[in-house]
Structure formats: C-alpha cells, structure tokens
Design a protein around this nucleic acid. Sequence first.
DNA 1: TTGTATGCGTTATCAC
DNA 2: GTGATAACGCATACAA
Lengths: 336, 336
Amino acid sequence: MSKVDIISIAKALNLSKSTVSRAFQEKSDINPNTRNRILAYANEVNYRPNHYASNLREQKSKTIAVVVPELENNYFTQIIKGAEKIAKQEGYHILIYATDDDINKEREFITSISNGKVDGVLMSVVGERDNHSYLHNIDLKKMPIVFFDRVYDDIDITKIVTDDYQSSFDATEHLILGGCKSIAYLVVDKDHSIGKERALGYKDALKKHKIAIQEDLIVDCSNSYDENFKILKELLINHKPDAVFSSVERLAFSTYFVCNDLGLKIPKDLKVVAFSSLQIAELLSPPLSTVTQPAEQIGQKAAKLLLNTLKGEPQDVDAKTIILKSELRIRKSSQF
Amino acid sequence: MSKVDIISIAKALNLSKSTVSRAFQEKSDINPNTRNRILAYANEVNYRPNHYASNLREQKSKTIAVVVPELENNYFTQIIKGAEKIAKQEGYHILIYATDDDINKEREFITSISNGKVDGVLMSVVGERDNHSYLHNIDLKKMPIVFFDRVYDDIDITKIVTDDYQSSFDATEHLILGGCKSIAYLVVDKDHSIGKERALGYKDALKKHKIAIQEDLIVDCSNSYDENFKILKELLINHKPDAVFSSVERLAFSTYFVCNDLGLKIPKDLKVVAFSSLQIAELLSPPLSTVTQPAEQIGQKAAKLLLNTLKGEPQDVDAKTIILKSELRIRKSSQF
DNA sequence: TTGTATGCGTTATCAC
DNA sequence: GTGATAACGCATACAA
C-alpha cells in the first residue's frame, strides 16, 4: 500500500494538487465533473485526508477535551455522554482526562494540551484550595475553557453549575421536617466551592429550623475508600447522628457499607440523602434518596457553549454563569 | 501576546531555530548551557511546542483511541481507567468514543480517525452480525488496533478476552446445583461472539446436568430500556423461570425492576446472576451475584500491548489472543 | 556543538 | 475552473 495523498491522486488524474484539495472542500469553484472524478478515484484508492497536515494548516484539531475528577461515576459519564452527543454533531472528537482530584495532574494536562492538541476544554476542576495560577499562563483566547459543576470562581470564563445551595437546603429541610435533629454533612473537600455552597445550604436549613450547627457533624472525608470507612464508622458510633446528608455520591455508598457493618438499619436508625445521579438508586437496599443533577443536560449545554465560542459566535455576556436545577428524589432511605 | 515559536525564541537568543528545537529533544548533542538558556527563556515567554506541527513532522499524535459500546457502565469506565493509567505513563492521551452498539458509528469513527488523529486504537466492537468489512480498508500497520472483550474473530490482530465460556458454565452450574431447573439466559445480541461464547457455557452446563435446553428461555433483548422491561415481564409471567442468568449487566437491573413490578422476591421466587463489574453490587436489594471481569486489568493489558506495538517492539506471536479470568461472586440474589 | 536547508501534507492566495 | 506557490511550526540530515 503505497502512500496515497493529494499529490499521488493529482498525478494519477493529471491534475494539480490544488484541484484535488478543492474536491474535498465544501464550498469551492470546482467543476462538478472533475470533483466527482476525484472523489471516485479517491474512494477507489481509499484516500483519507491527513489530519496532521490539515490540523497544522488550519490551526485546529476538531477535538475538545473533557476533564473530570473521576470517571467511575455515573454523573460524569452522563456529562461526557451529553458533551459527546453535541460534539459529534459538529464533527468534533472528545479527549478524556480524569484528574483523580490531583491539582498537579490537572495542571500538567491542561498545560500539555495548550498548544494544538485540542481546540477547547470542558472542565470540572480539582479544587479551589489549590493553587490554580497555572491557568494564567494559558491563552484562553486560543484554547477556550468552559467550567462545569466544580469551578474556579476567580477565573472569568463561562461556567455551568447547578443550584447547589438550594438543593442542599431543600434536602436538609426535608430531613428536618421528618424529625431529624442531628444531621451529619459529608464532604470531601471542605474548601471547595461546591462543598462550600452545599454546606451553606445545609447550615442555613438548620438555622431556619433553629437547630444548632455542630462542627463535629460536618465531616471532611478523603479519596481513600478505606479511610472513609473508618471516618464514617467513627462518626456513626461516637456521634450517633439520626441522618446523613452526603455531598458526594460515593460517601453515601460508604455510609451504606458502614451501616451494614454496624448492623444499623436505614432508614430506621439513620436516614440518608446524597448528591447522586446513579440510575439504579431505586435498586439499592434501601433505595437511596438523591439530589440528582441534570448531568446529560450539563454536558450538552457546556459543549454547546464551547462550540459556539469556537465558531466565533459572540459570547452571551449575560450568561457567564449558567445555573441548572437539580431534583430532590425522595426514596426509602429517608422515609419516616 | 505575540506568537511565540522556536523562530521567535531563536531570534531573541541569537541562535538558529534548529538549536532551539534541539533544546526540547531528549537526546541531542546540544551544549547544556545553551539548552538551559533556551529552556529558561522559553519558560519565561511561556512557550509550548506546537502539537500540530510536531505531529505532522513526526507522523504521530501520541494519542490512542478507546472505543467502547457504552460509557455508562462501570465495566467500561474501569477499562478506560486502566488504559489511561498506562497511556499516561508513556505520555499518551486518550480519545474516547462510544458506539452505542451502532456499527455505522463504529465504522465512521474508525474511518475518520484513520489518518493521523490517533496512533492506535483499543476497541470493544459492536457486533459480528454486522458487516465490518470497513476494517479491510484500514491500514492496521499505520494505525494498529487491539480488540478487547468483544472482538471480530476473523480479523487477525491482538485480542484480550475473558474466559466467557467457563465463567458462564460455572455460573449456570452454580444455579443448577442449587436446584434451579428452569434457567433463563438473557443476551442482547445472540449472534455476537461474546453472546455466543456465554450461551455455549450456559448450554453445556445444562447438558452436563441433563436439563433440556428450552429456546424460549434464551431471550434476545434490545438496547431500549422500555422494550427490555416488556420482554422480561413477558418472560417472567409466561415462562416462570426459577433463575435468570444475564450476560449483560443492565438486563439484570431490568430484571430487578420487573420483579419489583410483579412483586416477585429475589432470590425466593427467582435467582439472579449476571455478568457485571458494578462496584456496589453488594448494596443492591438483594446483593447481586456477579461474574466479574478484571476490567482495569483488561484496560491495562490492552494499552500495554498497543503501546508496545507502537514502540515497534516485536509482537508476541504466541499471544495473539490473551485470555484473562473472571470471578464468580455469589451473593444473596442466587442464595438457596 | 551549531547552523542551513528541506520536507511532513494540507489549504489559501494568487495568477492564469 | 484550474495550476503554481507559499505558508503552517517543527525536526532532522547534512554541512560547517
């Protein structure tokens, strides 16, 4: 199989390579006949335009990156699915990257792709606590970024978030109205914007109902499954909360495991509500009450905004931060 | 921010662009001092090598594609995670594509990336029934492909699979030994290599124990959740199997939903075992017995083999098809 | 060790 | 409507 490029095609057909190139462009003044002749021959010799070359020439790769904290989470895979759907419509491909909540990985990845690997980025960031000044070295005109879900507030770009404060407030109030007096709040990174927003909703709901905020019940967990198991076991044994509200899906799973271990019954001994987009929440034992974010919609919206930017359409300045609504789905784990 | 490339750096430092270029290569006879001088300046002006250009020049993109049937499945995300881990070590990036079990999407994607978008591909294919002759037009020397899990038998490339026949046999025998006489087998695409392998294990286990194979109990499902719900409801009502063995995770979920709908109790009224890598299988109601494939390991192995090929290392001819072992994890859903 | 020159395969700008 | 030619930014063979 010898190299087949526009030059070899041109030679075979006694044309110039410019004409051949033109045959593959949408809009160009080329004779329909010659175009067909070229297309037919190209098909015959199985020609594919060379991405390396056209990327260089056009300074774009028709690829966008999606950066998420973790892949093994329905929420993020649904977002990716949503983004992919939109991207595909426009002929874009998706580069995936999981940061595992490590700011170094985030920085290294964004930096490494910042000159010609992708045309733009959708990102849910690692954390605010960490130093994300590396972003100042990125030319956001050249490689636009759209944040979703977890964002850096101080970076002035388009952001898609959900109404974390309100959902959190509602979920907490739901527990209070059912009679809970001692509600634990689980978080992975207290200093993170999302953790903070959600914590605020939780606290304000407590305040509204005149329940004292106990710092002992605000539990900062880790990324290690084993550590979390210990932390939560300690919580349930020593502080005996009557409910757990988890701002992170997997901490709810850990809570279930700890309850099984301790012989605690959900919801009798402990109510549980969690941020989660798990599609089989209904099948858990017991079915898990969730704050479910519109994951696929987030992915679609984010991708649309990014692609609009890439197309050079004017940024909708009034909509720098877009807020989508989550849904509180009450199931047996928080039944009274 | 004016354009910063090796030429502008060269000018600023009174060097030639080749020298500057050399500073960024690992092995090149460049004076350590000049290299440091270049690196320091490059860092100062925030230079990033241009991927478009170096890709074209080197005819590689340091990117591999991972093609999976679906993203919203722990099994595949774990595989991606495994592949990503290996890829990252070698400085490769990952392009993700979900085919949604549509051969057209598979063909279009593979074809579209086949000239310079990626250096190689890891793929779990859509199906055998479908015409996959498009692969003959792909230059597998130029863009090597490694199949995993679901493969096209007739394409002679490296494949990573699990011991589907044996796992299926074991799972079925487990149900028989517990006293089941009427075991339904759920599959999505009967003609698919995996479906066939798994069906064979199921049938041979029945044969060994002198249980007649009933075609009515071999149920071909679809990709639509609603359709599957109907199909399975019909199965449970009209054929009253005492066990269900699902070759696909999500069909087990559907079975759970149908049982809830019909008021059937698992495992009392129906035992369930399924191929699944769900990490919270234990938390389902009831905990789901699974045949669990070594997902992350598959991803790692596949990536390693592909990267070895890309490095030009000799293919291990004895290992064209690598078989990894799955694990039967018996939980309450198939307890007697 | 460094500089010069060339090409990777396209697309775009001109002429014709 | 078509052809010649110049970029795109980098990496290498070769010369110095």
